[in-house]
Write a protein that binds this DNA or RNA. Structure first.
Length: 169
DNA sequence: GTAAGGATTGGC
DNA sequence: CCAATCCTTACT
């Protein structure tokens, strides 16, 4: 199966999301156990102007990796408990990311990171070359629906109402 | 240095 | 409804 490369991720997040739905997330553990699961729910976070995007607070130690060109992993701890898994997208200095909210048989971003055993060492991991996490292409075009993003009430009307959540139909 | 709060979940 | 729990960010 073909692995999605940096070229795939170096595009606008809103162009990538419809194509990323239904692709296969692969995680290889230290003991060589491998799991493959379809991506079923994602959210787009797009640039400093997007007040729901962490990059709206500018370039900091935490958001630094979002300014890299697409194709690397952005993880961060939320509520002191859950590691959120994101893929950086866009060109260099175009801070965007896709939040992986659900996989088939695993609903919710916190549960996803628990299943995949993610933690801070995945920050900046390159999806094209990593031996422990990557995404595989398949030739399916998956029907999806869109809706507002979750948990961003603070971001104001314009941004909280964007239909930037993509769920497999 | 210190305080506030969050891209969530699970339990009461 | 609300606690858990800790890192990042912004400062009375």
């Amino acid at each position: 199966m073909k692995r999605l490369d940096s070229e795939f991720f170096e595009r606008d997040v809103l162009e990538i999301c419809p194509e990323l739905i239904g692709k296969v997330l692969v995680r290889k553990f230290n003991n060589d156990r491998i799991i493959r699961m379809k991506i079923t729910e994602i959210e787009a976070y797009r640039g400093e102007e997007d007040l729901a995007c962490h990059a709206s607070k500018g370039r900091t130690a935490r958001t630094e990796v979002m300014y890299h060109r697409g194709g690397v992993v952005y993880v961060y701890l939320v509520y002191g408990i859950h590691w959120m898994l994101n893929f950086v997208t866009g060109k260099e200095n175009e801070p965007q990311a896709v939040l992986i909210r659900s996989l088939e048989c695993c609903e919710g971003p916190g549960r996803v990171s628990k299943l995949l055993e993610l933690e801070k060492t995945f920050y900046g991991e390159n999806l094209e070359f990593s031996e422990r996490i990557w995404v595989e292409d398949n030739d399916f075009i998956i029907p999806y629906i869109t809706a507002p993003r979750i948990g961003i009430e603070y971001s104001g009307n314009i941004w909280k109402n964007k239909n930037w959540r993509y769920t497999i139909k």
